[in-house]
Amino acid sequence: MSKTIKHHLTDDLLMAYAAGSLPEAFDLMVATHLSLCDDCRARAESFDAVGGHVLEQQGQPVSMSDESLAATMALIAQGAPTPKPARPGCAVLPAPLQDYVGGSVADIRWRSIGMGVKQAILPTGKDATARLLFIPAGAAVPDHGHNGVELTMVLQGAFSDEVDRFARGDVEIADEDLEHTPVADIGEDCICLAVTDAPLKFSKLVPRLFQPFLRI
């Protein structure tokens, strides 16, 4: 667990996660961040407590059928569902991401999108997109704005933009108002999880994706 996370999730994202109303890609972002950040995990679990209250204080519980307890005991007798395969630890991918990648960082099926930059789209519901991004050390992502909300969390390395520097566990939340040019630190290749509920839009007519920032 990282102790140096500076950029956290917002209360409205955590409440929506607790209420269960986020698109799957955003759930994946929140679950991944919570795996690294106990501050946000505590906030998320306090929003769960609100849900516990809502469940508990409903005015009219609906009675179960007469045989429901017996049916449930029969269900229990069938045994627990097969547990997820135990995955070897991965220094880059927290457990929820490993489930989507099907293994560790070595199992990511990268596709090159030019200039050494690679991405891997993760299989989530279509109302939002989740992808892993690989940005070579020192490379830049060209100026771009956002149609919707885009969350980017660093898993390895770091990047900096007009807002701040973001390292492992940090989440940058970009909305319509932010135009930025993220640049990966030169020390290490940068791997991020990025989720968005709208396609990225690039400021330049022909996006020269991910120009090398430093000729190293």
């Binding site: 407590a49 516990g52 469940l55 508990e56």
Partner: peptide, 12 residues
């Protein structure tokens, strides 16, 4: 978590 909170998360 209380049991009610935990049950809520499973139901959700």
């Amino acid at each position: 978590a209380t049991v009610a909170t935990w049950v809520f998360t499973i139901a959700r």
